[in-house]
Amino acid sequence: MTEFGNLVLSGLTSGAIYAVLAVCLALWFRVANMLNLAAGDFAMIGALGVDLLVRVHGWNLGLSILAILVVIALVAFAYDFVVLRIAVDWGRAQEGIVAIFFFTFALSFVLEGIAQQVFGTVVHAAPALWPGNALDFHGLHVQRAGVLVIGFALVVGVGLALCLRFTLVGKAMAACGENPIGARIVGIDSRRFRRAIFVLTAVLAGVFGILGSPITGFVYNSGAGLGLSGVVAAAFAGFTRPGRAVAAGLSIGLLESFLSGYVNTAYGETLLYGVLAAVMLFRPQLMGLPEVAR
């Protein structure tokens, strides 16, 4: 029973990591019809940036977090202002699947390259926000950072889902992704929404990196793997539903945890990807992909 409980906890912890990234991806896809493959890299910058400021430059932790989040927001804003503005607003982007995949994929390359120069190639992590040993309830262990990440995932996912459903601004966001021209016709500034959401999701990913990096530690190229797991989880939420993205992320984490706990420790991840690929291929309708992505 204890083993089961611990597997659930570790599953939820890694699931929450997928969930946060999936939420970021789903929200931006909903607004811009593009996948943000660089979300994981923003998380990496958050974690390693704070680590650099605190450990090397001796900054105060709170100040470092603030500074890094501002940097992330500026980078995201600049990227949108320069690249996405030309790509989308000037109509230079190729329609469809190419745009969905490749634009932020290039950004991911650049961010990783810069991180390689700035942060080096050693694994680091931001200082824990809730320091101390893992919590222990009668044999059930859970890392404090894990609790923070799970909480963060739930708050962000549920909050965004509610916002999309019950506010006009939330509906306007959905409208931007559904039909950008239609959105502009009713007076929704879809470009500003796109920019705002891109910056917001980048910052959310950064916060997540700062909260969650003590669990695994980050290195300059951690972002790609994180982003990919986010994409997979988001795919099972049809790419557009932040609420479902949280559920999908947590379920994938649990599945992974059970597979490696009960089936095979070494190949837990392999099995997980096998199962996910099989579901995608044989039951694509389970993903509920939106029309544009088909």
Binding site: F166, T167, L168, V169, K171, A172, A174, A175, E178, N179, I181, G182, A183, I185, V186, G187, I188, P290, E291
Partner: peptide, 24 residues
Amino acid sequence: RQLFPNLSVLDNITLGCYAWTRSL
């Protein structure tokens, strides 16, 4: 028409109000 095909009819119509309000 340029509607929002995956939103409900009511959502489509209320989004018209975005021109003058932000409150659902």
